[in-house]
Every structure is written in structure tokens, then in C-alpha cells.
């Protein structure tokens, strides 16, 4: 792996002002290589969610530098960050965050709508993505008609249909039973291995983090430990 995909340099994040101010991140330096599979762990309030929001370009740091590929993310405005997310990033969430009362197919098509991909092309790509996650026969179902594991797989299909370079997974198995958790995690491992998608995973379960190649522990706004599997 050549140039790193992500470089964080002295990132801090402060919420609020004056006495009520809260220092969520106190100076993070982090480099993530292209194609890596990183788990971010930490107790609640540690700053791991703030870190993930920054990495996912949903938020901007108070100070510090964030280079995604060669783009200085901290200098982008909201619309520019939207475009970066649209073209380079994919997201899956603990609560799945699918559009309710909307078919699996339409959910998967959603990111392509904003990419102005023509309708037929969208249909084709969305069906391919649903087939990849093993839901080829469920494309007409709405989230209410799918199990939790199936919903998360629709969300994964939505995240990967645009072939992002990085996939952000925020507690993706938090709402799932252990059997489904294993299914989803094994699928993420395969995506990472077969497609070279960089995966950033937030979790507080050790056995979920164990699927990652590298585990970062955040505590009190700083990186406490950073272990890579040999």
C-alpha cells in the first residue's frame, strides 16, 4: 500500500463556548492506509463518535489538518463535503437508516439519484448490489418487511453501490443477534479483501473489533492504544 488514504494531524474538536465548552478531541494524529480495516473502540464519551463524524466528513475539526487522499477536508464547506461523501464515502449505521415505506431497490438507488445516474442504469446497479448482499429476491420489500440482518444488508448494498473508497460503519451490528452479527462481519471482511474498500468500523464489542486488522482505542479525546494484527 503506497500513499496513505487518510492523514489526521493535530485534530481537536471543541463543542460549545466558555465554561460550557467541551473538548471532545484533544489532538489526534492518525494515518490510515488504503485498503485497511480499522476498528475504533472506546467507552461512551471518549470521543470516538466525534472522530468518526470527522473522518466521515460530516463535521469539521476545530483545529488541525485532515487530508483525505489529497483533499484538505478541514477547508471544505458543507456542500463540498457533501460532494466528497457522494463520490468517495459510504455509510452504514447501527439503526440501518433506510427510508421507511420505500422499497429496498429504491433505498439502494438513492445515492445514485444524487449522482445523476440514469434510471435504467440505477435499476441495474441497485439490483446487482442487492444480489451481492444476497437479497436478489427482496428488492421490492420495504424495510418493515425485512429482518434486522436483511435491513443492514440493504444498507450495505446502498453504501457500496457507488463503489466508495471508504466505508464507514457505525456500530453496524449493535442491533443484531450474534448469528447475524457474524454474517454481517464476514461480509464486511470479504468486501475489504475482494474489493479493496477501506473500512472504518466503530464498535464497543471486542469480538466485532476482532474482525479488523487494526484496532484503535480512543479515551478522553486521545488515541490510547493502536494495535495492528501482525
Amino acid at each position: 500500500m503506497n500513499a496513505p488514504l487518510i492523514r489526521l494531524n493535530g485534530i481537536t474538536k471543541k463543542y460549545g463556548v466558555g465554561d460550557a465548552a467541551f473538548q471532545a478531541l484533544r489532538g489526534i494524529d492518525l494515518t490510515i492506509a488504503r485498503g485497511d480495516f480499522v476498528a475504533v473502540m472506546g467507552p461512551s464519551g471518549s470521543g470516538k463518535s466525534t472522530l468518526m463524524n470527522l473522518l466521515g466528513c460530516l463535521d469539521t475539526p476545530t483545529t488541525g489538518q485532515y487530508l483525505y487522499e489529497d483533499i484538505a477536508v478541514e477547508q471544505l464547506n458543507a456542500d463540498q463535503r457533501s460532494l466528497l461523501r457522494r463520490h468517495a464515502l459510504g455509510f452504514i449505521f447501527q439503526g440501518f437508516n433506510l427510508l421507511a415505506r420505500t422499497s429496498a431497490l429504491e433505498n439502494v438507488e438513492l445515492p445514485m439519484v444524487y449522482r445523476n445516474i440514469p434510471r435504467q442504469e440505477r435499476h441495474r446497479l441497485a439490483k446487482d448490489a442487492l444480489a451481492t448482499v444476497g437479497l436478489a429476491d427482496k428488492f421490492a420489500n420495504t424495510p418493515a418487511e425485512l429482518s434486522g440482518g436483511q435491513q443492514q444488508r440493504v444498507a450495505i448494498a446502498r453504501a457500496i453501490v457507488t463503489s466508495p473508497s471508504t466505508l464507514f460503519a457505525d456500530e453496524p451490528t449493535g442491533n443484531l443477534d450474534s448469528k447475524t452479527t457474524i454474517e454481517i462481519m464476514e461480509f464486511l471482511v470479504r468486501l475489504n479483501a475482494e474489493r479493496g474498500i477501506t473500512i472504518l468500523l466503530v464498535t464497543h464489542e471486542d469480538d466485532v473489533a476482532a474482525y479488523a486488522r487494526r484496532t484503535i482505542l480512543v479515551r478522553d479525546g486521545l488515541i490510547a492504544t493502536d494495535h495492528a494484527k501482525p
Partner: peptide, 12 residues
Amino acid sequence: EIGIRLAIGARA
């Protein structure tokens, strides 16, 4: 829904 749309890259 608006949050989802913004996260996957919709502009304001």
C-alpha cells in the same frame, strides 16, 4: 430522512 440524504451526499 433528510439526515440520510445529507450523509450519502445530498447538498443543502
